[in-house]
């Protein structure tokens, strides 16, 4: 049962990712990415990392992707604007070779991980340990990142406003 669920969600995630790359229409691609992220969230849920599952949906599928789609809808690109010149044979071959090499390398790296390391504590990904990590062990990085985000927000407002 669990294995079937895993394969269903994993293949949905991969299919979404593939669709995201191959769709010509940017909005269709964005929706495919939402599907991929949602399926990925269910993989977290299957690990009983319920808080991470919720955050994945809330932040990525529910907030970031909505903003991306919002932007795409505002741009409203027509198919004519998206026509790209075809890739040459040499370029295409190089890209393909790069992908294959990357995949092989990734599998090799995965093989080096000894078995048993992947086991996590039973409260992995729950709200208490995540909170303790974020506001305990990594308090300073967390605060620095929030300052960074604040700077970005102020910068956006500054750029977008005509009169300050």
């Amino acid at each position: 049962m669990e294995v079937f669920a895993f394969y269903a969600f994993a293949s949905a995630s991969v299919a979404g990712a593939l669709l995201m790359v191959t769709r010509r229409n940017p909005l269709a691609g964005a929706f495919a990415l939402v599907l991929s992220l949602g399926a990925l969230a269910f993989l977290f849920a299957m690990l009983h990392a319920e808080f991470v599952f919720i955050l994945q949906i809330l932040l990525y599928a529910g907030a970031i992707m909505v903003l991306i789609i919002f932007t795409l809808m505002l741009l409203n690109l027509t198919p004519e604007e998206l026509k790209e010149p075809p890739i040459g044979a040499l370029k295409g071959f190089l890209i393909l070779a790069f992908c294959v090499a990357g995949f092989v390398g990734f599998v090799r790296v995965l093989r080096t991980i000894p078995e048993g390391v992947a086991e996590v504590s039973p409260d992995f990904g729950n709200i208490e340990p995540v909170g303790r990590l974020m506001l305990g062990n990594y308090l300073y990085p967390f605060e620095v990142i929030s300052v960074l985000l604040l700077v970005a927000v102020v910068g956006v407002v500054l750029l977008a406003k005509k009169v300050i």
């Binding site: 808080f51 919720i54 955050l55 809808m73 709200i127």
Partner: peptide
């Protein structure tokens, strides 16, 4: 009784936006 509790409601209702976006687009 999810570990995230009520955050689950926020998460799934935030997906609700997609219905409207998709319909509009």
């Amino acid at each position: 009784d999810l570990n995230g509790g009520i955050l689950f409601i926020l998460a799934v209702t935030s997906l609700n936006v997609y219905g409207i976006v998709l319909a509009g687009w």
